[in-house]
Protein backbone atom coordinates (compact mmCIF):
# COMPACT_ATOMS: atom_id res chain seq x y z
CA UNK A 1 0.00 0.00 0.00
CA UNK A 2 2.27 2.77 -1.22
CA UNK A 3 -0.44 5.41 -0.69
CA UNK A 4 -0.95 4.71 2.97
CA UNK A 5 2.75 4.32 3.34
CA UNK A 6 3.40 7.79 2.05
CA UNK A 7 1.25 9.19 4.84
CA UNK A 8 3.95 8.28 7.27
CA UNK A 9 6.39 10.56 5.55
CA UNK A 10 5.67 13.45 7.85
CA UNK A 11 9.09 14.92 7.11
CA UNK A 12 9.34 17.98 4.94
CA UNK A 13 12.41 16.97 3.03
CA UNK A 14 12.30 15.92 -0.57
CA UNK A 15 14.92 13.31 0.20
CA UNK A 16 12.57 11.54 2.58
CA UNK A 17 9.88 11.39 -0.09
CA UNK A 18 12.26 9.91 -2.61
CA UNK A 19 13.43 7.41 -0.05
CA UNK A 20 9.82 6.56 0.76
CA UNK A 21 8.88 6.04 -2.84
CA UNK A 22 11.86 3.77 -3.35
CA UNK A 23 11.00 1.80 -0.23
CA UNK A 24 7.41 1.42 -1.30
CA UNK A 25 8.57 0.17 -4.68
CA UNK A 26 10.74 -2.42 -3.00
CA UNK A 27 7.81 -3.61 -0.92
CA UNK A 28 5.65 -4.07 -4.00
CA UNK A 29 8.33 -5.93 -5.91
CA UNK A 30 8.97 -8.42 -3.14
CA UNK A 31 5.53 -10.03 -3.41
CA UNK A 32 6.83 -13.57 -3.38
CA UNK A 33 7.67 -13.44 0.30
CA UNK A 34 6.99 -15.92 3.03
CA UNK A 35 8.86 -19.13 2.29
CA UNK A 36 12.42 -18.38 3.27
CA UNK A 37 11.77 -15.69 5.93
CA UNK A 38 14.00 -14.69 7.57
CA UNK A 39 16.83 -14.86 5.08
CA UNK A 40 19.09 -12.23 6.56
CA UNK A 41 19.82 -10.20 9.69
CA UNK A 42 16.85 -8.48 11.31
CA UNK A 43 17.28 -5.05 12.89
CA UNK A 44 15.42 -4.48 16.14
CA UNK A 45 15.16 -0.76 16.83
CA UNK A 46 15.11 0.22 20.50
CA UNK A 47 14.04 3.86 20.77
CA UNK A 48 16.18 4.43 23.88
CA UNK A 49 19.88 4.55 24.70
CA UNK A 50 21.96 1.39 24.95
CA UNK A 51 22.17 0.03 28.48
CA UNK A 52 18.81 1.35 29.66
CA UNK A 53 16.03 -0.88 31.00
CA UNK A 54 14.25 -1.14 27.65
CA UNK A 55 17.49 -1.92 25.85
CA UNK A 56 18.11 -4.64 28.42
CA UNK A 57 14.74 -6.26 27.78
CA UNK A 58 15.32 -6.03 24.02
CA UNK A 59 18.73 -7.65 24.14
CA UNK A 60 17.47 -10.43 26.40
CA UNK A 61 14.72 -11.49 24.01
CA UNK A 62 16.58 -10.64 20.78
CA UNK A 63 19.27 -13.18 21.53
CA UNK A 64 16.84 -16.05 22.12
CA UNK A 65 14.64 -15.03 19.20
CA UNK A 66 17.73 -15.21 16.98
CA UNK A 67 18.24 -18.82 18.06
CA UNK A 68 14.72 -19.74 17.01
CA UNK A 69 14.77 -17.77 13.76
CA UNK A 70 18.18 -19.02 12.71
CA UNK A 71 19.08 -15.44 11.79
CA UNK A 72 20.72 -12.81 13.90
CA UNK A 73 18.63 -10.00 15.38
CA UNK A 74 20.79 -6.89 15.88
CA UNK A 75 19.65 -4.24 18.31
CA UNK A 76 19.94 -0.68 17.03
CA UNK A 77 19.50 2.09 19.58
CA UNK A 78 17.81 5.16 18.17
CA UNK A 79 17.22 7.23 21.29
CA UNK A 80 15.51 10.57 21.56
CA UNK A 81 12.26 12.46 22.11
CA UNK A 82 10.79 9.94 24.52
CA UNK A 83 11.10 7.07 22.09
CA UNK A 84 9.22 8.80 19.29
CA UNK A 85 12.31 9.20 17.07
CA UNK A 86 13.02 5.49 16.95
CA UNK A 87 9.35 4.65 16.46
CA UNK A 88 9.19 7.23 13.67
CA UNK A 89 12.19 5.64 11.98
CA UNK A 90 10.56 2.22 12.05
CA UNK A 91 7.29 3.66 10.74
CA UNK A 92 9.22 4.84 7.69
CA UNK A 93 11.29 1.68 7.26
CA UNK A 94 10.70 -0.96 4.62
CA UNK A 95 7.80 -3.21 5.59
CA UNK A 96 9.69 -6.38 4.78
CA UNK A 97 9.97 -7.90 8.24
CA UNK A 98 13.65 -7.00 8.56
CA UNK A 99 13.11 -3.89 10.66
CA UNK A 100 11.14 -4.21 13.88
CA UNK A 101 10.58 -2.02 16.93
CA UNK A 102 10.63 -2.85 20.62
CA UNK A 103 8.87 -0.12 22.55
CA UNK A 104 7.27 0.15 25.99
CA UNK A 105 4.14 1.83 27.35
CA UNK A 106 5.41 5.07 25.78
CA UNK A 107 3.94 3.81 22.50
CA UNK A 108 0.50 4.41 24.02
CA UNK A 109 1.20 7.52 26.09
CA UNK A 110 3.11 9.36 23.36
CA UNK A 111 -0.11 9.33 21.34
CA UNK A 112 -1.42 11.96 23.78
CA UNK A 113 1.82 13.41 25.20
CA UNK A 114 3.02 14.46 21.74
CA UNK A 115 0.51 16.51 19.86
CA UNK A 116 2.21 16.34 16.49
CA UNK A 117 3.71 12.91 16.08
CA UNK A 118 5.05 12.31 12.60
CA UNK A 119 3.53 8.81 12.58
CA UNK A 120 0.35 7.07 13.67
CA UNK A 121 0.92 5.02 16.85
CA UNK A 122 -1.89 2.69 15.77
CA UNK A 123 -0.46 2.33 12.27
CA UNK A 124 1.98 -0.48 13.00
CA UNK A 125 1.75 -4.23 12.56
CA UNK A 126 1.91 -6.15 15.81
CA UNK A 127 4.18 -8.99 16.91
CA UNK A 128 3.36 -9.43 20.59
CA UNK A 129 3.75 -8.39 24.21
CA UNK A 130 7.13 -9.09 25.78
CA UNK A 131 6.86 -8.33 29.47
CA UNK A 132 4.94 -6.17 31.90
CA UNK A 133 7.29 -4.60 34.45
CA UNK A 134 5.56 -3.80 37.75
CA UNK A 135 6.11 -0.55 39.60
CA UNK A 136 6.57 0.14 43.29
CA UNK A 137 5.79 3.26 45.34
CA UNK A 138 8.97 4.02 47.26
CA UNK A 139 10.02 6.75 49.68
CA UNK A 140 13.17 7.96 51.42
CA UNK A 141 14.05 5.57 54.21
CA UNK A 142 13.09 7.94 57.04
CA UNK A 143 9.70 8.86 55.58
CA UNK A 144 7.26 8.95 58.53
CA UNK A 145 4.37 6.77 57.27
CA UNK A 146 4.32 3.11 58.39
CA UNK A 147 2.20 1.52 55.66
CA UNK A 148 0.51 2.41 52.39
CA UNK A 149 -2.78 3.77 53.81
CA UNK A 150 -0.80 5.88 56.30
CA UNK A 151 1.41 7.02 53.43
CA UNK A 152 -1.61 8.16 51.40
CA UNK A 153 -3.01 9.94 54.47
CA UNK A 154 0.32 11.65 55.13
CA UNK A 155 0.63 12.85 51.54
CA UNK A 156 -2.92 14.18 51.58
CA UNK A 157 -2.38 15.90 54.93
CA UNK A 158 0.96 17.44 54.00
CA UNK A 159 0.34 18.19 50.35
CA UNK A 160 2.12 21.52 50.64
CA UNK A 161 5.27 19.95 52.08
CA UNK A 162 5.87 16.64 50.30
CA UNK A 163 7.75 16.31 47.03
CA UNK A 164 7.52 13.54 44.47
CA UNK A 165 10.36 12.81 42.07
CA UNK A 166 10.05 11.56 38.52
CA UNK A 167 12.51 10.79 35.76
CA UNK A 168 11.18 13.36 33.30
CA UNK A 169 8.08 13.87 31.21
CA UNK A 170 6.68 10.66 29.80
CA UNK A 171 8.94 8.47 31.94
CA UNK A 172 7.39 5.52 33.75
CA UNK A 173 7.77 7.31 37.08
CA UNK A 174 6.01 10.36 35.67
CA UNK A 175 3.08 8.29 34.42
CA UNK A 176 2.72 6.56 37.78
CA UNK A 177 2.94 9.93 39.51
CA UNK A 178 0.12 11.32 37.40
CA UNK A 179 -2.01 8.29 38.23
CA UNK A 180 -1.28 8.75 41.94
CA UNK A 181 -2.20 12.44 41.88
CA UNK A 182 -5.49 11.70 40.16
CA UNK A 183 -6.19 8.65 42.37
CA UNK A 184 -5.86 10.59 45.64
CA UNK A 185 -7.12 13.81 44.05
CA UNK A 186 -4.41 15.91 45.70
CA UNK A 187 -1.97 18.39 44.19
CA UNK A 188 1.61 18.32 45.47
CA UNK A 189 4.95 19.46 44.12
CA UNK A 190 6.57 17.14 41.59
CA UNK A 191 10.28 17.36 40.84
CA UNK A 192 11.37 16.16 37.41
CA UNK A 193 14.88 14.80 36.80
CA UNK A 194 16.73 13.82 33.68
CA UNK A 195 16.47 10.08 34.07
CA UNK A 196 16.05 7.65 36.93
CA UNK A 197 19.66 7.83 38.15
CA UNK A 198 19.65 11.40 39.49
CA UNK A 199 16.09 11.01 40.80
CA UNK A 200 17.10 7.89 42.74
CA UNK A 201 20.23 9.62 44.08
CA UNK A 202 18.14 12.43 45.51
CA UNK A 203 15.71 9.93 46.99
CA UNK A 204 18.58 8.06 48.64
CA UNK A 205 19.97 11.34 49.94
CA UNK A 206 16.57 12.35 51.26
CA UNK A 207 16.40 15.46 49.05
CA UNK A 208 12.97 14.39 47.77
CA UNK A 209 10.29 12.38 49.56
CA UNK A 210 8.93 9.70 47.29
CA UNK A 211 8.73 8.27 43.81
CA UNK A 212 6.94 5.50 41.96
CA UNK A 213 9.20 3.55 39.64
CA UNK A 214 9.75 0.26 37.86
CA UNK A 215 11.06 -2.69 39.84
CA UNK A 216 13.99 -2.67 37.42
CA UNK A 217 15.21 0.48 39.16
CA UNK A 218 13.94 -0.01 42.69
CA UNK A 219 14.35 -3.68 43.65
CA UNK A 220 18.01 -3.56 44.67
CA UNK A 221 17.57 -0.37 46.66
CA UNK A 222 14.57 -1.83 48.51
CA UNK A 223 16.36 -5.05 49.44
CA UNK A 224 19.40 -2.98 50.39
CA UNK A 225 17.24 -1.03 52.82
CA UNK A 226 18.26 2.33 51.38
CA UNK A 227 14.66 3.22 50.51
CA UNK A 228 11.25 2.20 51.82
CA UNK A 229 8.63 0.43 49.70
CA UNK A 230 4.91 1.05 50.27
CA UNK A 231 2.97 -0.73 47.57
CA UNK A 232 3.21 -2.57 44.29
CA UNK A 233 1.13 -1.34 41.37
CA UNK A 234 0.15 -4.83 40.23
CA UNK A 235 -3.12 -6.76 40.75
CA UNK A 236 -1.17 -9.55 42.52
CA UNK A 237 1.62 -9.23 45.08
CA UNK A 238 5.13 -9.43 43.62
CA UNK A 239 7.02 -12.71 43.89
CA UNK A 240 10.18 -10.93 45.08
CA UNK A 241 8.34 -8.93 47.78
CA UNK A 242 5.57 -11.19 49.06
CA UNK A 243 5.06 -8.94 52.09
CA UNK A 244 4.55 -5.81 50.03
CA UNK A 245 0.81 -5.03 49.63
CA UNK A 246 -0.70 -4.04 46.31
CA UNK A 247 -2.25 -0.63 45.62
CA UNK A 248 -5.67 -2.29 45.44
CA UNK A 249 -5.20 -3.69 48.95
CA UNK A 250 -4.37 -0.16 50.01
CA UNK A 251 -7.61 1.09 48.53
CA UNK A 252 -6.35 2.59 45.28
CA UNK A 253 -7.10 -0.02 42.57
CA UNK A 254 -7.15 2.73 39.93
CA UNK A 255 -3.38 3.08 40.42
CA UNK A 256 -2.65 -0.30 38.89
CA UNK A 257 -0.07 0.18 36.18
CA UNK A 258 2.76 -1.72 34.56
CA UNK A 259 5.39 -0.80 32.05
CA UNK A 260 4.52 -3.18 29.26
CA UNK A 261 6.82 -3.79 26.32
CA UNK A 262 5.73 -4.82 22.85
CA UNK A 263 7.30 -5.61 19.49
CA UNK A 264 5.98 -3.90 16.37
CA UNK A 265 6.70 -3.89 12.63
CA UNK A 266 6.15 -1.17 10.01
CA UNK A 267 2.72 -0.86 8.46
CA UNK A 268 2.27 -3.35 5.65
CA UNK A 269 4.67 -5.99 6.95
CA UNK A 270 3.31 -9.34 5.72
CA UNK A 271 1.41 -11.36 8.30
CA UNK A 272 3.70 -14.32 7.59
CA UNK A 273 6.61 -12.29 8.93
CA UNK A 274 4.87 -10.97 12.04
CA UNK A 275 3.49 -14.45 12.72
CA UNK A 276 6.93 -15.99 12.45
CA UNK A 277 8.40 -13.31 14.72
CA UNK A 278 5.61 -13.91 17.19
CA UNK A 279 6.47 -17.63 17.36
CA UNK A 280 10.11 -16.72 17.92
CA UNK A 281 9.07 -14.32 20.66
CA UNK A 282 7.07 -17.05 22.41
CA UNK A 283 10.08 -19.34 22.14
CA UNK A 284 12.33 -16.69 23.71
CA UNK A 285 9.88 -15.94 26.52
CA UNK A 286 9.66 -19.62 27.42
CA UNK A 287 13.43 -19.80 27.85
CA UNK A 288 14.47 -20.39 31.47
CA UNK A 289 17.45 -18.03 31.11
CA UNK A 290 15.17 -15.19 30.03
CA UNK A 291 12.74 -15.97 32.85
CA UNK A 292 15.57 -15.95 35.37
CA UNK A 293 17.02 -12.66 34.10
CA UNK A 294 13.60 -11.04 34.16
CA UNK A 295 12.90 -12.39 37.65
CA UNK A 296 16.08 -10.67 38.86
CA UNK A 297 14.59 -7.44 37.58
CA UNK A 298 11.35 -8.08 39.41
CA UNK A 299 9.35 -8.93 36.32
CA UNK A 300 8.26 -11.95 34.30
CA UNK A 301 7.91 -12.80 30.60
CA UNK A 302 4.44 -12.32 29.15
CA UNK A 303 2.54 -15.62 28.80
CA UNK A 304 2.48 -17.15 25.32
CA UNK A 305 -1.14 -16.06 24.84
CA UNK A 306 -0.08 -12.42 25.21
CA UNK A 307 2.96 -12.70 22.96
CA UNK A 308 0.66 -12.51 19.94
CA UNK A 309 -0.26 -9.75 17.49
CA UNK A 310 -3.90 -9.68 18.65
CA UNK A 311 -3.04 -9.32 22.32
CA UNK A 312 -0.62 -6.45 21.66
CA UNK A 313 -3.14 -4.67 19.45
CA UNK A 314 -5.79 -4.85 22.19
CA UNK A 315 -3.27 -3.72 24.80
CA UNK A 316 -2.16 -0.71 22.78
CA UNK A 317 -5.71 0.38 22.01
CA UNK A 318 -6.95 0.10 25.60
CA UNK A 319 -3.85 1.83 26.96
CA UNK A 320 -4.13 4.78 24.56
CA UNK A 321 -7.74 5.21 25.69
CA UNK A 322 -6.79 4.86 29.34
CA UNK A 323 -3.98 7.41 29.38
CA UNK A 324 -5.60 10.08 27.22
CA UNK A 325 -7.81 11.50 30.02
CA UNK A 326 -5.07 11.13 32.67
CA UNK A 327 -2.54 13.09 30.61
CA UNK A 328 -5.07 15.68 29.50
CA UNK A 329 -6.17 16.22 33.10
CA UNK A 330 -2.55 16.76 34.14
CA UNK A 331 -2.16 19.16 31.24
CA UNK A 332 1.42 18.10 30.48
CA UNK A 333 2.64 17.71 26.96
CA UNK A 334 6.06 16.91 25.62
CA UNK A 335 6.03 19.25 22.65
Amino acid sequence: MPGAYAEFLGGNMAMKRILGALCAATVLSSAAFAEGYPERTITMVVPFAAGGPTDTVARLVAEKMSTDLGQQIVVENVGGAGGTLGAGNVAKAEADGYTILLHHIGMATSATLYRNLPYDPLGFEYVGLVTEVPMVMVARKDFPAADFPAFVEYVKGNADKVTMANAGIGAASHLCGMLFQSAIDTQFVTVPYKGTGPAMTDLLGGQVDFMCDQTTNTTQQITGGTIKAYAATTPERLAIFPDLPTVAEGGLPQMEVSIWHGIYAPHGTPAEATGRLSTALQFALADPGVTKAMADLGTAPSPAADATPAALKTKLETEIARWKPVIEAAGVYAD
Partner: peptide, 11 residues
Protein backbone atom coordinates in the same frame (compact mmCIF):
# COMPACT_ATOMS: atom_id res chain seq x y z
CA UNK B 1 32.51 -4.48 15.82
CA UNK B 2 29.19 -5.51 14.35
CA UNK B 3 27.66 -2.05 14.27
CA UNK B 4 24.12 -2.20 12.92
CA UNK B 5 24.86 -0.41 9.64
CA UNK B 6 23.40 -1.62 6.35
CA UNK B 7 26.42 -2.09 4.11
CA UNK B 8 24.39 -1.53 0.96
CA UNK B 9 21.12 0.28 1.30
CA UNK B 10 17.71 0.03 -0.35
CA UNK B 11 18.47 2.71 -2.94
Amino acid sequence: LGLPFRRFGPW
